[in-house]
Simulated scan of single mutants.
Amino acid sequence: MDFPPHDDAPPLASPLAGVVAAFMPRLAEFAFDPGLLAAIDQHAAAVCDTLNSDTLGADLPEVLIPAQRTVGREELTDYVLGFSDVLAEKGWEEPVGYDFATLRLTAICWLVREQDLLAF
Rank of each mutant, 00 (worst) to 15 (best):
A21W: 01
F23M: 07
M24E: 15
P25E: 07
R26L: 11
A28H: 11
F30V: 03
F30C: 07
F30Y: 14
F32N: 15
F32R: 15
F32G: 15
D33A: 15
P34A: 07
G35R: 11
A38E: 14
A38R: 12
I40W: 01
Q42E: 15
H43R: 14
H43K: 08
A44V: 00
A46S: 12
V47Y: 00
C48R: 00
D49Y: 05
L51F: 08
L51G: 02
D54N: 08
D54W: 12
A58N: 06
D59E: 14
D59G: 08
L60Q: 13
P61I: 06
P61K: 06
P66Y: 10
A67D: 13
Q68H: 10
R69Y: 13
R69D: 09
R69W: 06
V71D: 00
G72E: 14
G72D: 11
E75Y: 04
E75F: 02
E75H: 03
D78G: 07
D78S: 12
Y79C: 00
Y79W: 08
V80K: 02
L81G: 08
G82S: 12
D85E: 11
D85T: 07
D85K: 10
V86T: 05
E89N: 06
K90W: 03
G91M: 03
W92G: 02
W92C: 01
E93H: 09
E94R: 15
E94K: 14
V96M: 10
G97Q: 03
Y98N: 02
F100Y: 13
F100V: 12
F100A: 11
A101W: 04
A101F: 04
A101P: 07
T102R: 10
R104L: 03
R104C: 06
R104Q: 07
R104P: 01
A107Q: 00
I108R: 00
I108G: 04
W110P: 01
L111G: 06
V112T: 04
V112D: 03
E114S: 14
E114G: 10
